[in-house]
Amino acid sequence: MTTSLITGATSGIGAAFARRLAAAGHRLVLVARDEERLRRTAAELGARYNTAAEVLPADLAEDDGIAAVEARLRDPGARVQVLVNNAGFGHRGRFLETSVTDESRMLKVHCEAVLRLTSAAVPAMRERRHGFVINVASTAAFMPRGTYGASKAWVVSFTEGIARELDGSGVRFLALCPGLVRTEFHERAGMDPGKAPSWAWLNPNKVVATALRDLSRGRTVSIPDPRYKLAVALARHTPPALFAAASQRTTRRYDPKL
């Protein structure tokens, strides 16, 4: 039976991955900070899909939390064939309005945890010549704005780089870059989702379905919606100053404090 480990597994895209992989018969290792919520999620998935769902409480903004997940990934007795690095969060406010401590915690979760967990999982996958790593980034990776966009750009670059280095190894890598997704992410960041137009929102289940389809097709970057594919293409080909001005106007409609 395939074992899949998912970080940030109790809500949003992480929970959608958990449901989809459980439905496919995978054994799950669910990682998140809230142990009580993890146990509820594991019980629900186990009952609904008749699969084993292990819980691993860990705060990936802390060294001890990352180390606990690293140890689980390296455990030779319970091999993980699929790793989904999904944990993440955002901040409201401009760069100088956010503390360096909070920005550093974001980098810890978005970059260091992804690096360390991927490094822990991949050697055994390569030895078996089979495995999958999905790193959840964002379209913000192509539309830079502060630490969040920069950290997600790192995730995309890191994923593309290791995919090239390990081409032919049997291990596949995917950077998933969704736009706005209906999850708890925005409320936790203190943003008002009601300010964004309804057409901009993506369904997490559809995002996951597209990601897994792109992974099966051998793609390394997945942008799961034609509208966001167009937005990324425009970002890549529009003069930076012009695109930044347009992006700032759009962002202020979403959050007037920015």
Rank of each mutant, 00 (worst) to 15 (best):
Leu83Pro: 02
Val84Ile: 07
Asn85Gln: 02
Asn85Met: 05
Asn85Pro: 02
Phe89Val: 11
Arg92Lys: 15
Arg92Ile: 03
Thr98Val: 14
Ser99Leu: 05
Val100Phe: 00
Val100Tyr: 00
Thr101Asn: 12
Thr101Ser: 13
Asp102Leu: 00
Arg105Val: 01
Arg105Asp: 00
Leu107Ile: 13
Leu107Phe: 03
His110Gln: 00
Glu112Tyr: 14
Ala113Pro: 06
Leu117Ala: 13
Thr118Asp: 04
Thr118Met: 06
Ser119Phe: 13
Val122Lys: 04
Val122Glu: 10
Val122Asp: 03
Ala124Thr: 14
Arg126Val: 15
Arg126Glu: 15
Arg126Gln: 12
Arg126Cys: 04
Glu127Ser: 12
Arg128Gln: 14
Arg129Met: 07
His130Met: 12
Val133Tyr: 01
Ile134Thr: 04
Ile134Leu: 13
Ile134Arg: 05
Asn135Tyr: 09
Ala137Cys: 05
Ala137Tyr: 06
Ser138Val: 09
Ser138Glu: 04
Thr139Cys: 12
Ala140Phe: 14
Ala141Val: 05
Ala141Cys: 04
Pro144Met: 08
Pro144Thr: 04
Thr147Asn: 00
Thr147Trp: 00
Thr147Ile: 03
Tyr148Trp: 05
Ala150Lys: 01
Ala150Val: 13
Ala150Cys: 10
Lys152Asn: 12
Trp154Ile: 05
Phe158His: 08
Phe158Ala: 04
Thr159His: 12
Glu160Ile: 06
Ile162Pro: 01
Ala163Asn: 09
Ala163Ile: 02
Ala163Lys: 05
Arg164Trp: 10
Arg164Ala: 13
Glu165His: 10
Gly168Lys: 11
Gly168Ser: 07
Ser169Tyr: 08
Ser169Phe: 05
Ser169Arg: 02
Gly170Val: 12
Gly170Trp: 07
Arg172Glu: 11
Arg172Cys: 01
Phe173Cys: 01
Ala175Gly: 01
Leu176Val: 04
Phe185Met: 03
His186Thr: 11
Gly194Trp: 13
Ala196Ile: 05
Pro197Leu: 07
Trp199Glu: 14
Trp201Asn: 02
Lys206Pro: 01
Val207Ile: 09
Ala211Val: 13
Arg213Glu: 14
Asp214Gly: 07
Asp214Lys: 08
Ser216Ile: 05
Arg217Thr: 03
Gly218Ser: 03
Arg219Ile: 09
Arg219Asp: 05
Thr220Tyr: 07
